[in-house]
């Protein structure tokens, strides 16, 4: 078996997270981040991450005590420009073992955020539990 060489060329890795608890509506609620870690980039106007170059993203949320049998999914949004796309993931708190671990996406845009996409009840994302991680690729 051969492996991809150990070093890739990228501008930086990054992560962002929330510092305030957020209660969200069932659908179409933007999940906001307040802190951009360890990178010269910034949080966008609506709480997403500003991506000056192409980037690969991994987004996660943990909900605090969701109602029983809640079903929801999240997706990256605002990535349609410049050929970007955003994945989504679904979580069913009743059938807990078949959930994915987050949404993945790749793109280049300002203010790329996650949004609730599908749900049966409202839920809450606690402090530090809305997370976006990734790396900026060289052009």
């Amino acid at each position: 078996m051969s492996y991809i060489p150990p070093t890739v060329t990228a501008e930086a890795v990054f992560s962002a997270y929330n510092t305030t608890t957020q209660s969200a509506s069932v659908t179409d609620q933007i999940l906001t981040c307040q802190v951009f870690n360890d990178c010269s980039q910034s949080i966008g106007a609506t709480g997403g991450v500003n991506l000056p170059t192409k980037a690969m993203l991994h987004g996660q949320i943990r909900t605090d005590s969701p109602p029983d049998q809640v079903l929801y999914s999240i997706k990256f949004d605002n990535m349609a420009q410049n050929g970007g796309f955003g994945g989504q993931f679904a979580c069913n708190s009743t059938v807990r073992t078949d959930q994915d671990d987050g949404a993945y996406g790749i793109g280049i845009d300002t203010d790329v955020f996650m949004r609730t996409h599908r749900g049966t009840k409202t839920w809450k994302s606690d402090v530090n539990e809305t997370r976006i991680m990734g790396f900026l690729l060289n052009q």
Binding site: A12, V13, F14, S15, N37, D38, C39, H58, Q60, I61, R62, T63, D64, S65, P66, P67, D68, C91, S93, R96, Q99, D101, G102, D126, R131, M133, G134, F135
Partner: peptide, 14 residues
């Protein structure tokens, strides 16, 4: 009711 999960542990740093 209980919180949902994260299944991976990350360390992302420059």
């Amino acid at each position: 009711a209980g919180p949902t999960s994260t299944n991976v542990a990350n360390y992302v740093t420059n």
